[in-house]
C-alpha cells in the first residue's frame, strides 16, 4: 500500500492542491478497501480527485457515468446479440458444431461486451473505478451497486461467478441531486468538497499555471470567490472555469481585472445570461460597468434612470 509520504509526493508531482482531510480519507479507503464517496457542489473538483488518484497510484482509470435509467447492461456487461446471431447463421450453414458446442461458444468471452463495472472487476491490475454522479442513477441501480461493492464478485448466469482479481479503488461522486441510501453511505469513506478558499484557489492557479502574473492570479481568485458568494448567481463558477478564465485573461495579455477585461472575458466564468448581468458586482465602487457618465453606483445620488437610458441595469 502507498505510504502517506508517497501519496503526498505523488499529488505534488501531479500539481494537485490537497489538504490533510483528503490525504486521511484516501489512506482510510485504501487501508480498509472501502469506496470513497465524494459530495459537493458541481465544479468543486470531485471527478478530478479520481483522475489524479489514478495517476498517482499508477492505476488505470475506469469511468462509469451514471444517468437516469442506467441499468446493468450498460454498467456491467451485455451479450453481443448481433455477433451471436451471425455466429448462429454461420454455424447453421457449416453444420459442424453440435448444439451444445454452439451454445457454449455463444456465451463465451468472445461475445461478452464488458462494461465498466465488469472491466474493473476483471482487471489484472488494480484500477481506480470512478462511478460519477451516482445520484443521477435510480435507486435500483444503487442497490445493485451496493451488492457488487460488498461482494466484489458478480454472477453471469451463462459463465458463472466472476470474482475480482484485484481490489479497485472505487470513487463515487454525487452532486446531491437526491439523497443516497444510508446503506451505501455506510459502506464508504466520506469526503465533502467545498468550494476552495481564496488562498487555496490561488494555490491551484499558481500550481496549474506556473507562469501566471501573481497579481492577476490573486485578482481572479478573489473575483471568483465574490461571484460564488453572490446569491443572485445561479450557476457558480467551478474551479475549471477559474482556470479557463485565468488562461483567457493571460492569452489576451490582461494583467488587471478592469471593466474592459471583465466585459471581454466574462463568458469564461459565468455561463448564464442572467448571471452575466452580475459581473458588474466585481467592479470597484464608482464604476457601474457601462459606458456612461453616470458616476457609478458607489456615488451618492447616482441616477439609475440615467443608466437605464443607456440601456443597462443596476442591481440591488
Amino acid at each position: 500500500m502507498i505510504s502517506e509520504n508517497e501519496l503526498r509526493a505523488g499529488l505534488d508531482r501531479a500539481a494537485y492542491v490537497y489538504d490533510d482531510i483528503l490525504i486521511s480519507t484516501v489512506l482510510v479507503a485504501l487501508k480498509l478497501g472501502r469506496p470513497i464517496l465524494i459530495e459537493g457542489a458541481a465544479g468543486v473538483g470531485k471527478t478530478e480527485v479520481a483522475k489524479v488518484l489514478a495517476e498517482v497510484l499508477e492505476r488505470p482509470l475506469i469511468r462509469l457515468q451514471c444517468y437516469e435509467g442506467l441499468d446493468e447492461s450498460k454498467a456491467l456487461y451485455e451479450w453481443n446479440y448481433q455477433k451471436q446471431l451471425l455466429a448462429i447463421q454461420v454455424s447453421m450453414n457449416r453444420k459442424e458444431d453440435t448444439d451444445d458446442d454452439l451454445t457454449r461458444s455463444l456465451f463465451s468471452d468472445e461475445y461478452l461486451l464488458e462494461r465498466p463495472l465488469l472491466a474493473s472487476i476483471r482487471s489484472e491490475e488494480p484500477a481506480v473505478l470512478l462511478i460519477d454522479e451516482i445520484d443521477k442513477a435510480d435507486e435500483e441501480f444503487e442497490a445493485f451497486l451496493l451488492e457488487l461493492l460488498s461482494e466484489m464478485q458478480i454472477t453471469i448466469p451463462e459463465i458463472g461467478t466472476v470474482k475480482s482479481k484485484t481490489t479497485p479503488l472505487v470513487i463515487l461522486t454525487s452532486n446531491r441531486a437526491r439523497p443516497l441510501s444510508e446503506a451505501l453511505r455506510r459502506r464508504c469513506a466520506y469526503l465533502y468538497l467545498a468550494y476552495p478558499s481564496v488562498e487555496k484557489e490561488l494555490a491551484i492557479l499558481t500550481r496549474k499555471m506556473p507562469n501566471i502574473d501573481a497579481q492577476l492570479a490573486l485578482s481572479v481568485a478573489e473575483a471568483v470567490h465574490t461571484l460564488r458568494a453572490n446569491d443572485a448567481i445561479l450557476k457558480k463558477p467551478s474551479i475549471a472555469e477559474t482556470l479557463d478564465w485565468a488562461a483567457a485573461l493571460e492569452a489576451l495579455g490582461i494583467t488587471e481585472l478592469d471593466r474592459d477585461a471583465l466585459e471581454q472575458t466574462k463568458g469564461f466564468v459565468l455561463k448564464n445570461n442572467e448571471d452575466l448581468d452580475e459581473i458588474h458586482t466585481l467592479l470597484p465602487e464608482g464604476d457601474c460597468g457601462e459606458d456612461c457618465d453616470c458616476g457609478g453606483h458607489g456615488e451618492a445620488g447616482h441616477d439609475q434612470s440615467h443608466c437605464a437610458h443607456h440601456g443597462h441595469h443596476h442591481h440591488a
Partner: peptide, 28 residues
C-alpha cells in the same frame, strides 16, 4: 484497526481519519 496500525503524529490526523470513517454527510 486504523488506530492500532497507523502511526499517527498528531491529534488532527486522528480526527480526520475517524471523520472519514464515521461521518457520512456534511451535517454528520
Amino acid at each position: 484497526l486504523l488506530l492500532s496500525e497507523t502511526d499517527f503524529t498528531d491529534r488532527e490526523r486522528v480526527k480526520n481519519t475517524l471523520r472519514a470513517l464515521f461521518a457520512k454527510s456534511q451535517a454528520e
